[in-house]
Simulated assay, not measured.
Amino acid sequence: MLNIAVLVSGGGTNLQALIDAQNRSEILGGRIAVVISSKAEAYALERAKKAGIPTETLIRKEYSTQEDYDAALLRILGRYQIGLIVLAGFMTIISDNVIRHYENKIINVHPSLIPSFCGAGFYGLRVHRAVLERGVKLTGATVHFVNEVCDGGPIILQKAVKVLEGDTPEILQRRVMEQAEWILLPKAVALFCEGKITVHNGKTKIREDSI
């Protein structure tokens, strides 16, 4: 059984999607072993506690250097024998050192169809605001592996979502969550835990019987 760490900073809606999928036995071969938050007041911690999942709080400003913070994070991950890290709205920098330690074992969900509206500065409502300002007709979500390039890791799954007349960033954010993020993230985690994703030359391949 693969141990999964979910890293959060806020409300934890994507965490809840993973918890719900786990409760429906949709994530075979893996389980959420710990939820790590960058904020002590994050509601995601309450979601984890209600589900009986251990929690840890790791606040960047409590560490004088990035190296000290990295070491603390790696200690927690090691203690829980983590085999997969899921970034679910985690707003603290993951350093190259941690990324190399868990190469192709860190998954992130981004609220757009990468390579559009991604990279430095594109997160949360900023993404959806940019989508509306550009006037595109389709947006969506992408689940990808994390590498040293912001939002640049191998893409695992994507799903398109229509942009509708009258959308606000908040309305569009909710639709992207409901129609894409909450579907794709548990599916990608399940595929990983079942050993159905391989990475070659910066691209992923998913076993055809899994799609």
Rank of each mutant, 00 (worst) to 15 (best):
residue 61 K to H: 14
residue 16 Q to I: 13
residue 184 L to N: 02
residue 74 L to Y: 03
residue 41 E to P: 03
residue 185 L to N: 03
residue 96 D to F: 06
residue 55 T to H: 07
residue 195 G to L: 07
residue 67 E to P: 01
residue 103 E to G: 07
residue 35 V to E: 09
residue 124 G to Y: 06
residue 95 S to L: 13
residue 202 G to L: 13
residue 184 L to R: 01
residue 83 G to Y: 10
residue 187 K to I: 12
residue 2 L to S: 05
residue 117 F to Y: 11
residue 157 L to N: 02
residue 78 G to D: 14
residue 170 E to Q: 14
residue 40 A to L: 15
residue 6 V to P: 00
residue 72 A to N: 02
residue 184 L to A: 04
residue 165 E to G: 07
residue 145 F to G: 01
residue 85 I to K: 00
residue 119 G to D: 12
residue 67 E to Q: 14
residue 80 Y to C: 02
residue 94 I to P: 00
residue 70 D to N: 05
residue 207 R to Y: 07
residue 90 F to G: 12
residue 205 K to A: 14
residue 13 T to E: 13
residue 18 L to H: 02
residue 190 A to H: 10
residue 137 K to S: 11
residue 97 N to G: 11
residue 195 G to V: 05
residue 8 V to R: 03
residue 175 R to N: 06
residue 125 L to V: 09
residue 21 A to M: 09
residue 131 V to G: 03
residue 26 E to W: 13
residue 118 C to P: 01
residue 70 D to F: 05
residue 102 Y to N: 05
residue 192 F to W: 05
residue 107 I to Y: 01
residue 32 I to M: 09
residue 204 T to S: 07
residue 128 H to K: 08
residue 161 V to A: 04
residue 75 R to N: 15
residue 37 S to V: 05
residue 87 L to I: 11
residue 65 T to S: 14
residue 35 V to Q: 09
residue 100 R to C: 08
residue 52 G to Q: 07
residue 112 S to E: 10
residue 24 R to N: 13
residue 92 T to W: 11
residue 17 A to M: 10
residue 66 Q to G: 12
residue 209 D to M: 07
residue 187 K to M: 14
residue 146 V to H: 02
residue 64 S to G: 13
residue 99 I to H: 04
residue 173 Q to R: 12
residue 184 L to I: 08
residue 151 D to M: 04
residue 99 I to Y: 06
residue 108 N to P: 10
residue 44 A to E: 06
residue 31 R to P: 02
residue 33 A to H: 04
residue 86 V to C: 10
residue 129 R to D: 14
residue 203 K to A: 13
residue 30 G to Y: 07
residue 70 D to L: 07
residue 89 G to D: 10
residue 138 L to T: 12
residue 64 S to Q: 15
residue 99 I to N: 04
residue 41 E to H: 15
residue 153 G to M: 07
residue 180 A to S: 09
residue 150 C to V: 15
residue 117 F to P: 00
residue 84 L to I: 06
residue 52 G to W: 09
residue 188 A to S: 10
residue 157 L to E: 05
residue 54 P to M: 05
residue 141 A to S: 04
residue 187 K to H: 13
residue 56 E to Q: 12
residue 193 C to R: 01
residue 102 Y to T: 05
residue 118 C to R: 00
residue 117 F to N: 03
residue 7 L to I: 08
residue 112 S to M: 03
residue 196 K to V: 02
residue 185 L to T: 04
residue 151 D to W: 01
